[in-house]
Design a protein around this nucleic acid. Structure first.
Lengths: 112, 112
DNA sequence: GCACATACCTCGTATAACAAAGTATACATC
DNA sequence: GATGTATACTTTGTTATACGAGGTATGTGC
């Protein structure tokens, strides 16, 4: 990962939610999409992603469905729920606030 | 605190470093400055702040000094070190990257 | 003498992100 | 038909962050 891992905490669920909201996906696909869409800034391992997907589903923010076609590895496709969309909105707003707060504090130290 | 606490993880050390860089301060004062300067967005308790100050000092990023004047409660004033300033720069850059990554992913879900 | 703001300190808890290891299927190619 | 690679999902154990709650002690105003 490109960051001190701690910097990511709490943001991970949010951006996973965002990517699932943009397009229903299965886990393995998400690993690649996250990397691609974020231009390599976020790179989750499967051991990080899957547990989060389970958790998001438990909370009712995404809903998984087994996709089994003949001659194809079975995969679990997740899509966002209405509750998940509300979560995403709320978290987006919190994120904006956090960014604003950081700008206020980091800005003040530029020339000190 | 205004946020899901997890959203803050990893950012806390960074903005404390920034505020100390802007102006040498002691712990109790920092609690108030953080709230004030961030326009109420960040509100750390003392139980959160002090352990972080000790850690930052252990790592050599800030340096504390007892300030004892007659007729005055003794207080420990911290100022940033050269190494701390380098840390702050590095973390600032990481933060910008993180913000950029989030913008890429959150932006994509606006109309999905 | 009392309340209150100032100032610092410490312990225990929850849980997030991660690495590592494991299981198993499709497909190419030799 | 054996071998290798990409796909796809699952589980376990570790680390350390932020926090709440509680504790100590000094200066100021009334």
């Amino acid at each position: 990962m490109k960051f001190d891992r701690e910097l990511l905490k709490g943001t991970t669920e949010t951006f996973i939610l965002a990517v699932v909201a943009a397009q229903p996906s299965h886990g393995y696909q998400l690993v690649k999409q996250l990397k691609l869409k974020s231009e390599g800034i976020f790179q989750l391992g499967e051991g990080t992603l899957y547990p989060i997907l389970y958790k998001l589903e438990t909370k009712g923010w995404i809903k998984g469905k087994w996709d089994e076609c003949a001659g194809m590895r079975r995969r679990r496709v997740y899509r966002i729920t209405p509750a998940g969309r509300r979560q995403l909105t709320a978290r987006s707003e919190q994120w904006d606030e956090l960014v604003r707060g950081m700008a206020l504090l980091l800005g003040g130290s530029i020339n000190a």
